[in-house]
Design a protein around this nucleic acid. Structure first.
Lengths: 209, 209
DNA sequence: TATTACTTGTGAAATAAGTCACAATGTGAA
DNA sequence: TTCACATTGTGACTTATTTCACAAGTAATA
């Protein structure tokens, strides 16, 4: 809420990465670091790092650099990571299950609160600690659990329907794995991870080398 | 190979999307379309579409628009999709298996030629039509099968080691799902799909709405 | 055939993203 | 304390990307 400055998508992606890198360093006991070290780890330039960090409002000290812990905290504040947000995943296929397994193990900062599918054979069980419900219970469960984020792992043909359902249940942002752009109202944010596209991209880039 | 014009990443991503949209339309029997229709489906502007299509060298005809089939062909040529490229996937965990299942079903243009893992309990079997080998056989199998692309679905801690292995086996481009940027020589291309980052991103964007 | 209406392709302008380069400043050494 | 210097933060510049806007051109109609 109200963080006035607006962050560009690119900067947003990079500061998320910085936070993770810093977390790893902190876990290894590193107390401070320089912009050029962070740049090295993030694969970009020191100037880029310093420019990105401007939006957090955090200042390092010349000659000493940044204090790892302080910078992490400042990035967390910038990212509004105060209240933990809950996620609903729709589409308990191979990819959906992989994501359930992936997250409810290793990410303490997020939790997938519930999973849904329209296939009766996939529901009423628990995968990686996450309860699976039939899609007809979607809206009530979302409201009951206070879910604000959605993950779409259904086939392209039903992705838009699922997105519409998420929007009307009050979900504020959607991460879509189906290879089709979603139409959502402007008060909802939709991002897409398109694995096929990523492959075609590297195939092209391999072909020109 | 010699396609002189260089395509920006952004344009590359979009023309891959255009091709898929066009394929769907062609399958439904649509013979022609206008830039504004393609823009609508791709969620961008007509001017953007026309600008992107410039690099393919294909020209539509005023008043009639683009011929679906011709445009698809022209995009394929632009993307150097002549020879089918083969993929090696390393990391037969949940995500790796999901990707194997996903691709060897529905993507005729790619094939994952082999999968690898360092865990003995995960190898010497077939998943979704794909043979799984121990990582020690990596280089010989890559060369035997003519693999040019790599997918990394191992944990962050071993991603760089796997990438180095891919590079020395002669792989030309890598798609990395581990949440860490890979260091590769400049004649190899590495792209990353970072699911955790994508989630943190939508979490932030939900928080400011 | 001439006319109308609409769409394309692209130069030019606008916006966004990234890099440079340097004054300011705190640190550590003497 | 003073000095030398490595590092920060940022204004100015450069490069990349997107949008605008319109001349050129084609299909459909009369």
């Amino acid at each position: 809420m109200g963080n006035a400055r607006k962050i560009s998508m690119k900067t947003l992606e990079r500061i998320v990465l910085y936070k993770r890198i810093l977390g790893d360093l902190a876990a290894k006991g590193q107390k401070t670091l320089y912009s050029h070290q962070l740049a090295e780890l993030a694969h970009n330039s020191p100037a880029q790092v310093r420019r990105d960090l401007m939006i957090t409002g955090y200042s390092g000290t010349p000659r000493r650099g940044y204090t790892t812990e302080d910078l992490i905290k400042k990035i967390s504040v910038t990212l509004n990571e105060t209240a933990e947000q809950k996620i609903a995943l729709v589409g308990i296929g191979n990819l959906g299950r992989a994501i359930l397994a992936y997250f409810n193990y290793q990410q303490p900062s997020f939790s997938i609160a519930a999973a849904f599918d329209s296939d009766e054979t996939r529901v009423d069980r628990v995968i990686a600690g996450c309860r699976c419900y039939h899609l007809r219970e979607f809206e009530s469960k979302v409201k009951e659990l206070g879910v604000t984020l959605g993950i779409v792992t259904v086939p392209a043909s039903s992705a838009q329907t699922v997105a519409d359902m998420m929007v009307s249940a009050g979900i504020k942002a959607i991460l879509n794995f189906a290879p089709v752009p979603l139409k959502v109202p402007s008060n909802v944010f939709a991002d897409r991870i398109d694995i096929t596209m990523a492959l075609e991209k590297i195939a092209y880039l391999a072909s020109i080398k």
